[in-house]
Design a protein around this nucleic acid. Structure first.
Lengths: 290, 290
DNA sequence: TAATTTGCCTGACTTAAGTCAGATGTTTTT
DNA sequence: AAAAACATCTGACTTAAGTCAGGCAAATTA
């Protein structure tokens, strides 16, 4: 009935209608939008004046005047940067903290107001996650974390839960050779997580061994981010990291219930090899020479 | 990892970042946003000056000046309304049509630019449909159409396709007692369609018979709009229409493969009765007295 | 050390958007 | 027929946002 473009435009009309109000809601505390945006940027931890200016795309003159306004209101203090006296740093006063908190509260309230009319919010939240991840595609941030970090733990739990749903007879981490965290920390290995505006979207582990190869483990992509090419990106980043760590042979194993993964490895330059371990779960074994 | 509210806020950040640019794209043709919005409203068929004013929420003075600007540019002509000389109507000149077309083209381009980075756009489009339908919930428009109208036909095709997927052995309209369109046109019956900013989201037929009752047929809700309470809304509207048409007994039948429908009817005040026809598909039969 | 660059500030502008108090002509109500 | 209501217009404002040229002090480079 509607073309792809019409569907897309309908979406953006709907969104600008509803969240347009949500965005302009910076108003409602008797402060112009520009001033409120600067206050919120500072509250979010951007202290460097030039940094805020670049982030919000403001002219230096305008920025300067906005800072004076906030200073006169007693919400911020601007001090010279000790390392470079030309630069200046803005910090919130207690009153500024309180005001920033109010904006946070109002934003939460708006967000909640967007959800409450819908008794079954889950499909809506999932659609939001998917779209946010897709729209922020060029702002994915891949970071190396300790596998015991809470963010890493979250990704791993999601990964195990999915395996448990999909494998015949479920999946129990304890029966699998749970890679020791130490093997996934540099210089022996690595653990990468992809964050998109605070949401963990994917993880992958590079596990060092003493057998002349390293293993790729725990490649997981959040349902909200599938089909966006994120698995390929994570693998490319891991391979780059492996090279940095002097690793030249990679191996991995996977299960027949994960056909999209098997397909992906084949397309991504992996070669099927014979079974190289006695883990009970995997059915397929791959190798890649860097 | 993220709370519902955080997910919702992440979504609106992503959207304002990306479609914010899409919205302000009214610029880029050397014309202030307000002027461009009025031109587009007129192009979209809103000729009544007061109507545009209410739609865009403009002050009458501002509106007047914007109209002068567009008139001076030769894009519109403003004439008194023949029925009420106080009112004025704005129509596009050929130059205005061309300019409006350019805005449409630019909007299409932006929308396309939003989709093209994503090889598999379908999950994205579906998420967009769902969110647009949810966000525009208070702007659903239920209209009575001829069941042979193209919009009605579209809904019915979708409905039949879904039954075909879900029924054991599929579904063939021809084997079912296809209700004659005439029975779903007032004063004998009715056919209602729900539109949300141009997208058909649901339909339902009220089929008049000569047996002392009317039948509810073809209740369909688009996947993009399920879980938003639309079925209940459609049924309420149909019942209201039935009362207007002097109908006091409603019946319907449904199939065991549509458990959510059966559940819905039970909760919506319908009472299960004995089989009242020899249609091959239905397993359950309901009645409701108005 | 002198010249240049950098980061921020100030003052003098412009534009867009919007508000408000009447004015004007038309229609509706009394 | 007079009064009230209505739709639009005009002129005189205000505010927010942004641009631009130049100034100043600190830091960097030649």
């Amino acid at each position: 009935m509607l073309s792809d473009i019409e569907r897309c435009r309908r979406f953006s009309r709907a969104v600008t209608k509803v969240t347009g109000a949500l965005d302009t809601s910076f108003l409602g505390r008797g402060r112009p939008l520009g001033v409120a945006r600067v206050l919120n940027a500072i509250g979010h931890g951007r202290q460097d004046v030039g940094d805020v200016r670049a982030y919000l795309g403001l002219d230096s003159g305008l920025m300067s005047r906005i800072l004076r306004t906030l200073e006169e209101e007693g919400l911020i203090i601007v001090t010279p940067d000790p390392d470079d006296q030309r630069k200046r740093r803005a910090t919130l006063t207690p009153a500024g903290e309180a005001e920033y908190g109010e904006y946070e509260r109002l934003s939460d309230e708006r967000a909640e107001g967007l959800l409450t009319p819908h008794p079954k919010a889950n499909p809506i939240l999932e659609a939001m996650d998917l779209l946010a991840s897709a729209l922020l595609k060029d702002q994915w941030e891949v970071v190396e974390l300790d596998p015991r970090d809470p963010v890493s733990r979250y990704c791993l739990e999601e990964y195990y839960a999915e395996l448990n749903r999909r494998f015949d007879g479920g999946f129990d981490v304890k029966r699998s050779a749970d890679p020791d965290a130490k093997d996934m920390i540099p210089p022996r290995g690595s653990f990468l997580v992809c964050l998109s505006d605070g949401m963990p979207l994917a993880c992958v582990g590079l596990k060092g061994t003493d057998k002349g190869y390293a293993e790729i483990k725990r490649l997981w992509v959040a349902p909200a981010a599938r089909g966006l090419g994120l698995a390929r990106r994570m693998m490319a980043d891991t391979e780059a990291r492996a090279r940095e760590l002097g690793i030249s042979v990679l191996r991995l194993d996977t299960n027949k219930r994960l056909p999209e993964a098997i397909d992906f490895y084949r397309k991504d330059g992996w070669v099927e090899i014979d079974r190289f371990n006695d883990d009970p779960y995997p059915d397929y074994f791959f190798e890649k020479l860097l």
